[in-house]
Structures are given as structure tokens and as C-alpha cells.
Design a protein around this nucleic acid. Structure first.
Length: 426
DNA sequence: TCTGGGGTCCTAGGACCC
DNA sequence: TCTGGGGTCCTAGGACCC
């Protein structure tokens, strides 16, 4: 049977979430900033019209924002994550198989829907999401995921389509593919664009017409897949069940600069605490952790980038184990005389804690560790992240220097009782 | 002064083995 | 100076995604 996929995503998603809870923002330029209030990661159409680019550093647009009355928010992931969950709940009544692709994008399996009914169902989907969550969306439909993505791009940039584009038919593909630029094809980034440009490719239609074997030589199997997908031959299936994740990382830029080992170890210990929380939430563990830190690539002055991996005797997700290893690693690669801008912890090869290999010696009392960590997590979940942390982490004294900035964050409207919007009271 | 964070997949090349 | 032909596994780095 010919497959069919629908891709739905939120328009300027983070900005739209802010607008849902503050209707005064309607029609105004709004942007949402990355961690540390560093750069713009979401912009409404009004903000784009002012020339604010994706990823524009805040210091370079601060004056423009002030002059033009742009409303600026720090990112509020608690709010966006919850809105995303609500949207996916709506999708469940439109398709039995759904792949949550990112915080604001999901693929729906439209294969069982008759071709002539797909566009209508897409419209219904959009209006239901809008009515139930307040978030505006666009829908793209196609016989492969790549074509559904492409259709979504077309819907976004073509107002007369009113938010939906269906590339099910060959005629529709013939009509639209020549109008889509190379870089708007899913999977074609800067490097591939340059290579394909050398072959004279300018549009999605040009890519679809390439010889797949030639594409494989220059763009590996990834490029070959893109061509088949653009021709309507599915190579990438829907993943209704999320595969278990392979790695886990906690990395942050500092609000200021870190120049002492004590401060670096505080920051690293805080990251280790987060890493432990993330692993435990998924029932996963790791037997090593990689510590890294580096100076800013943008600054002049001495630069340094280092990393080291610390192995454990056995897999663990105990915060005390992680903090100890991370601080030890940080000390091992520490060198003074640099203004460090960012630090992080990474692990690959994470495994389920249950049935992971035990150490012959130097192992941990897992039962005790599990109880302690469960108590820690329960307390922090109830009273806010970071309320309780191990004394070994030593977080407190100097945190102002490294703690991430969120100076313009909106309330957590949907997930904290004391922050829900109040109607009809002065 | 101020420039995000967290993932996945693919390939090439080296180490090692028989 | 001559000195094979495979395998596998691991890692680093590139590219891409949101």
C-alpha cells in the first residue's frame, strides 16, 4: 500500500506558547532567547520582518528590539514541554501511529486515510489543535517523510494555502518541487548544498532528478536516501516507539567567566547532579563520564579546549558517584590562566540500570543508593530543582559567576499552581 | 560584557586478530 | 629488500537535525 505521512508543527512554537497566555502579544514582534539569554531561537513573523535572524546574538539586536518594541523572553522549557504534550494528546484522535519528532513537530501516519480525504483531515487537525491549545500550526502531507517535511515548508511560506499542503499526487509534486530551494530539503545542510551546487542543482526538483549512485558517491547513503524519498519511495519509516537513547549530556555556557578550579568544580558538580536526574528518570546508568571545558571561540586571548573521560568500576546513576568522578576529572585537566566560557559532561553507551553488569570489587550498595536518590528526586521535584543536593557538590558559594541567566522568563503557567493565570481579579 | 543545548547517523582510519 | 588477505572493533570527526 502507498504510504502517507503528515507532519504537523507549531508556528514560531516558543513564541506562540508565550502568546497563548498573554493575548496582548498578538500582532506584536516577539522573540524567545536560548539558554543564558544568548541568542534568538524563536521569532514571530513580525520579528522576522524586522530582520531578526535565527540565532542572532542578543547583544547585536538589543538596540533594535528596544527601538521597535520587540517583546523578548528567556526560554521557558517547562511551559513549552507541557504545551507540546497537550498538542500530542490532540494528535492521538487523528492517527493511531504518531512519531514525536521534536518538541514542536510530530509525524502522523495518514496511510489509512483515503487520498482525497487527507487535506480535509489536515484542516480538521489544525483547527482542533488551535481550539484546544491555542497554538497555530502548519501541516504537510506526502508519501514519504521527506515529502511531508517539504510540504510543511511550502505550507509555512505560502499564505494562500492557509497552513496546509498536500503532496500526495504526482501532479502536486511536479508543481511544487521546482519552487523549493535546495537548503529547504530535509537533510541538506550547508556542506551538501555546496556539493550539489557544483552539479548544477538549485531546487528540490533538481535533487530528485539526480542519479542516486552519483549522489551516494558525494553525499554517502544519506544523500541517496534523500533522492528516493523525494521521488516518493519511502526509505525512512515512522518511529511510533521512541528508540532508547544512546547518549546523554549536560552542557552549559557560563553567565560570566570561570577562572578558578573551585568555581569550575562547582559548575561541573551541578551538571553532574542534572546528569544523574536525567539518567534516573529513564532508568538508565553509565560506567563513565566525559568532562570538558573550553574558552569562548568568539573571544580573543588565550584559548583552550580540553576533555577527559573517567571510568567507573560499574554502571551507576548515583549523583554522588557522578559528582565525585566529574570533580576529579575537572581537577585532572584544570589549568589556570584562562577565562573559561563553557563546561559540560557527556556519556555515551548508557544502559538500563537493571541487568547491567556488576563490579567484582568497588561496587555500590545499589539498594541504599536507589533509596537515597529516590528521596532526593522526590524532594527536588516537589520543591523545585536544586533545593537539595549532595554536600560534595559544594554548590552555593560562588554560583553567581557561572549560573545560567534567564532574566526575562515568563511564569510556568501550566505546571506550577502558584503561577497559573488568574482571571477576573485585580 | 554579551554568541544555546542536546541529539543522531555515517565514514575513514588505526589497532588488532587469525 | 622482499614480506597477504581478510575480518572486527573502536574512535574521531563531519554533517545534519530541532
Amino acid at each position: 500500500m502507498t504510504r502517507s505521512f503528515a507532519l504537523i508543527d507549531g508556528n514560531s512554537f516558543y513564541c506562540s506558547c508565550e502568546r497563548v497566555f498573554d493575548p496582548k502579544l498578538k500582532g506584536r514582534p516577539v522573540i524567545v532567547l536560548s539558554n543564558n539569554d544568548g541568542c534568538a531561537v524563536a521569532r514571530t513573523a513580525e520579528a522576522k520582518a524586522l530582520g531578526i535572524r535565527m540565532g542572532a546574538p542578543m547583544f547585536s539586536i538589543r538596540e533594535l528590539c528596544r527601538r521597535e518594541g520587540v517583546v523578548v523572553f528567556s526560554s521557558n522549557y517547562t511551559l513549552y514541554g507541557d504545551m507540546s504534550r497537550r498538542m500530542n494528546t490532540v494528535y492521538q484522535s487523528f492517527a493511531s501511529d504518531i512519531e514525536v519528532y521534536s518538541i514542536d513537530e510530530s509525524f502522523l501516519d495518514f496511510t489509512p486515510v483515503a487520498p482525497e480525504r487527507r487535506e480535509e483531515l489536515g484542516r480538521d487537525l489544525r483547527s482542533t489543535v488551535s481550539a484546544w491549545t491555542g497554538v497555530p500550526t502548519c501541516v504537510g502531507i506526502g508519501p514519504t517523510k521527506t515529502l511531508a517535511k517539504l510540504a510543511n515548508r511550502i505550507a509555512k511560506s505560502t499564505p494562500q494555502l492557509r497552513g496546509i499542503c498536500d503532496l500526495t499526487s504526482d501532479e502536486a509534486q511536479r508543481e511544487w518541487l521546482p519552487l523549493v530551494a535546495l537548503e529547504d530539503v530535509w537533510g541538506i545542510g550547508r556542506a551538501s548544498q555546496a556539493k550539489l551546487g557544483a552539479f548544477g542543482c538549485e531546487t528540490a526538483a533538481d535533487v530528485a532528478a539526480l542519479d542516486p549512485k552519483l549522489a551516494r558517491k558525494t553525499l554517502t547513503v544519506v544523500g541517496e536516501r534523500i533522492i528516493h524519498e523525494l521521488r516518493g519511495q519511502p526509505c525512512i519509516d515512522l518511529e511510533a516507539v521512541a528508540p532508547t537513547r544512546k547518549g546523554c549530556a549536560v552542557t552549559r555556557s557560563f553567565a560570566g567567566r570561570v577562572e578558578t578550579l573551585e568555581m569550575m568544580q562547582e559548575a561541573i558538580a551541578a551538571h553532574a547532579t542534572r546528569l544523574g536526574e536525567k539518567l534516573r528518570r529513564h532508568g538508565l546508568a553509565t560506567d563513565h563520564v566525559t568532562v570538558f571545558f573550553h574558552t569562548s571561540p568568539f573571544n580573543k586571548g588565550p584559548s583552550r579546549s580540553v576533555s577527559t573521560t573517567v571510568d567507573f568500576p560499574e554502571a551507576s546513576n548515583d549523583t554522588l558517584v557522578l559528582v565525585r568522578a566529574a570533580k576529579w576529572g575537572a581537577r585532572r585537566i584544570w589549568k589556570p590562566g584562562y577565562a573559561y566560557a563553557k563546561a559540560g559532561l557527556m556519556t555515551v553507551d548508557i544502559v538500563p540500570l537493571e541487568n547491567s553488569q556488576r563490579a567484582l570489587m568497588g561496587g555500590l550498595d545499589r539498594e541504599k543508593s536507589g533509596r537515597l536518590m529516590a528521596a532526593l528526586d522526590a524532594c527536588n521535584q516537589r520543591h523545585g530543582r536544586g533545593v537539595v543536593f549532595p554536600a560534595a557538590a559544594g554548590i552555593a558559594r560562588q554560583r553567581k559567576a557561572w549560573v545560567t541567566k534567564f532574566e526575562m522568563r515568563s511564569p510556568r503557567y501550566t505546571t506550577r499552581l502558584d503561577e497559573v493565570p488568574v482571571v477576573g481579579r485585580a
